[in-house]
């Protein structure tokens, strides 16, 4: 069953066509990757799903619901969480608080109740914290729990971002280059985590990634983009060996 569907989506910035008549569908329970050279429009697709951009034409549906009807801050309420290519964490807050913000969509109490710290607020807080501690254990973030983001190394920040997205109990997780800038070891960890996220948590993953090694190990299906349009789609092997993909990456004969 497909969870997320894009139909004929086109986005233009001025004269530039960033995404060109793209159709794709992500099935429930799979790990799906978008690959392609820089500037192919991969992150733009993420920003379309997050509703930061509105497509020029086309449809985006999530679990049968029309995403284009929602403002960006209501997208998470459907169960879509994401990370960012250039890490957008809350720098002055601790790791714990960052993860707790991930729980924002699940809050039940209002401002006045919270100011008075009614028992309902305390009950809710306990639930949030229990959920967040699970994520902390899962991602081995225990040593950094009470540290502010501003002082953490890059690799840890990447993991915290994944954790923040997981804390919101999503159905679909969008990972924007989860392994970029990570060491070999950290990439290895990321690979296990993505596997576990899919297998044990039952979360569907859509990721953008350049590291074909990682992609071929964790992904079920891959879609290759170039200049905003679909080049090829299929298993990692099929896409890697597709002639159009090879020429897009290595350049065509006349350019070489």
């Amino acid at each position: 069953m497909s969870l997320l569907t894009l139909e004929n989506v086109t986005l233009k910035f001025g004269g530039l066509t960033a995404v060109n008549k793209l159709s794709m569908d992500v099935k429930e329970g799979e790990v799906f990757a978008l690959v392609g050279p820089n500037g192919a429009g991969k992150s733009t697709v993420f920003n379309l799903i997050s509703r930061f951009y509105t497509p020029f034409e086309g449809k985006i549906t999530f679990d049968g619901q029309d995403l284009l009807k929602l403002p960006p801050d209501e997208v998470p309420s459907l169960g879509i969480a994401r990370t960012f290519q250039n890490i957008e964490l809350f720098d002055q807050a601790t790791v714990l608080d960052n993860l707790l913000v991930g729980r924002h969509r699940l809050r039940k109490t209002n401002l006045v109740e919270q100011m008075l710290h009614l028992p309902s607020v305390r009950r809710e807080e306990r639930e949030h914290r229990a959920a967040v501690e699970e994520v902390i254990d899962f991602l081995d973030l225990q040593p950094y729990r009470n540290k502010r983001i501003a002082g953490l190394p890059y690799g840890v920040r990447k993991v915290v971002e994944v954790g923040r997205a997981l804390a919101s109990k999503p159905r679909l997780l969008l990972l924007d280059e989860p392994a970029s800038g990570l060491s070999v070891e950290e990439t290895q960890n990321m690979r296990w985590w993505i596997d576990d996220i899919r297998r044990h948590m039952g979360i569907t993953v859509l990721m953008v990634e350049h590291d074909m090694g990682l992609v071929s190990k964790v992904c079920d299906r891959v879609l290759a983009l170039a200049d905003g349009a679909k080049l090829a789609e299929g298993t990692p092997e099929e896409v890697q060996n597709h002639p159009a993909v090879i020429s897009a990456y290595l350049g065509t004969g006349d350019a070489a």
Partner: peptide, 29 residues
């Protein structure tokens, strides 16, 4: 103090530090 240990207080800090990702976490800016 109560606000700081509740979702709204954290949403305030989220807006302060990164509006983009606060939005992506479901915070109505």
């Amino acid at each position: 103090r109560n606000l700081l240990r509740a979702p709204m207080g954290r949403a305030f800090a989220a807006v302060r530090d990164s509006e983009i990702s606060a939005q992506a976490m479901g915070v109505n800016i």
